[in-house]
Amino acid sequence: MLNRSLASFWRSQRRWFYGLLAGVTALSLIVGTPQPTQAISWWELLMRGAQIFQLSNLSDQQEVQLGQQINQQVGVQLNRKGTPISNHREATAYINSIGQRLAAASDRTDIPYTFQVVEDPGINAFATMGGFVYINAGLMYEAENEAELASVMAHEIGHIVGRHAVGQMRQQALASGALAVAGLDQSTAVQIGVDLALNLPHSRGDEFDADRIGLAMLRRAGYAPSAMVSFMQKLQRGGSPPAFLSTHPNVSDRVQTLRQMLQENPPTASEVNGLDAVSYRNLLRRFAQ
């Protein structure tokens, strides 16, 4: 009885075994074929279990997945600098409420967004792919009202909507020789993404594009669009540009472009929210307690 059972089991598994054998043979032929244009062999990828991202055709799901890994490493880097992501629940909830309101008014509502406060007194904000936006505590206190704060957040969401980080990553990978025919491996993509978020500026074209996208988003969310102009002017008058603007295009050019857009399409009666400076300051004082 036992012998018959074993024989029956072997017959049922024979097709699976032969299929596996054929697959291994085919793979050995691929590995044995020279691949001079690929930085990473298919065999190495199989052994490492590495995911390859084709940046020219990155899906939303892949972008979010990559953004999550970049976000984890950004958190590690910020901790090392002594400016960690804040665990202040009320402040984080407030930033998230503004961000989700803006994201819902964006042209890219099919990805999740995460908004975080960085415990840094410097005036700065940045974003990475996959819906991750970071706002320094110093920028929150520099803003005169919620609309000014929202204008910066709208600009950063504009970078995500425009997929600017994906384009930058491709350029960096090409420049460094890390981009193979198959695409970019996961660990290299994360390293480039962290560097882009923390150290490398956007191009002049990307910044103007994020201003345009952000202004439209700000208006659809009901915030006063004049706040984007007033906040830029305020920072410009402060002397040396803060980190948020020091690597961006000339602030005067950006202000002039925004003013022209508002002249061509003046604000409506519904686009006046977020200008209450007293309520905003009271809220910040509560956060500091």
Results as ranks from 00 to 15, higher is better:
243 A>W: 05
196 L>S: 09
218 L>S: 10
242 P>Q: 12
210 A>T: 01
183 G>K: 00
210 A>F: 05
217 M>G: 11
240 S>T: 13
212 R>T: 14
199 N>L: 14
201 P>F: 02
232 M>I: 00
245 L>Q: 00
243 A>L: 12
237 R>P: 03
193 G>H: 00
187 S>V: 12
198 L>C: 11
241 P>S: 15
180 A>T: 14
213 I>E: 13
190 V>I: 15
198 L>M: 15
213 I>Y: 11
185 D>Q: 14
246 S>D: 12
237 R>C: 05
240 S>K: 12
237 R>I: 05
218 L>H: 11
197 A>L: 07
177 G>Q: 14
246 S>I: 13
211 D>E: 09
203 S>W: 03
209 D>I: 06
233 Q>M: 13
215 L>S: 09
217 M>A: 06
179 L>W: 14
211 D>P: 04
206 D>R: 13
184 L>W: 04
177 G>S: 08
216 A>F: 11
199 N>G: 14
181 V>E: 14
225 P>S: 05
180 A>L: 08
214 G>P: 01
198 L>R: 10
192 I>K: 01
190 V>N: 05
231 F>L: 15
245 L>C: 08
238 G>H: 06
202 H>K: 14
189 A>E: 00
191 Q>H: 06
186 Q>R: 15
179 L>N: 06
198 L>V: 01
211 D>N: 10
230 S>Y: 02
211 D>R: 08
219 R>S: 06
214 G>L: 00
213 I>C: 13
181 V>S: 11
215 L>G: 07
203 S>L: 14
221 A>L: 13
235 L>K: 00
217 M>C: 04
197 A>N: 12
193 G>E: 01
199 N>D: 13
188 T>Q: 13
242 P>F: 08
179 L>K: 07
230 S>A: 15
213 I>Q: 13
220 R>N: 05
211 D>L: 09
230 S>P: 05
177 G>H: 07
224 A>K: 03
230 S>D: 12
216 A>K: 15
223 Y>E: 00
187 S>W: 10
180 A>C: 04
187 S>G: 08
238 G>C: 04
205 G>F: 03
214 G>V: 01
195 D>A: 13
182 A>R: 08
227 A>H: 02
194 V>W: 03
213 I>M: 09
202 H>W: 10
239 G>V: 02
198 L>E: 10
183 G>W: 01
183 G>E: 00
241 P>K: 11
199 N>W: 10
246 S>F: 12
236 Q>L: 09
227 A>G: 03
200 L>I: 15
177 G>D: 07
242 P>V: 01
177 G>M: 02
184 L>T: 03
227 A>D: 02
215 L>R: 07
226 S>L: 09
195 D>H: 10
216 A>W: 06
244 F>Q: 11
241 P>Y: 13
201 P>W: 07
242 P>C: 12
177 G>L: 02
220 R>A: 03
224 A>V: 05
192 I>Y: 01
244 F>T: 11
190 V>F: 06
182 A>Q: 12
222 G>M: 04
196 L>K: 11
177 G>A: 02
195 D>W: 04
237 R>L: 15
210 A>D: 02
189 A>G: 07
218 L>A: 05
207 E>P: 02
206 D>P: 03
178 A>C: 03
230 S>Q: 12
245 L>N: 03
195 D>E: 15
222 G>D: 14
197 A>S: 15
243 A>H: 08
233 Q>H: 12
206 D>G: 07
181 V>F: 14
216 A>P: 09
194 V>S: 01
235 L>E: 01
211 D>G: 05
228 M>P: 05
189 A>M: 11
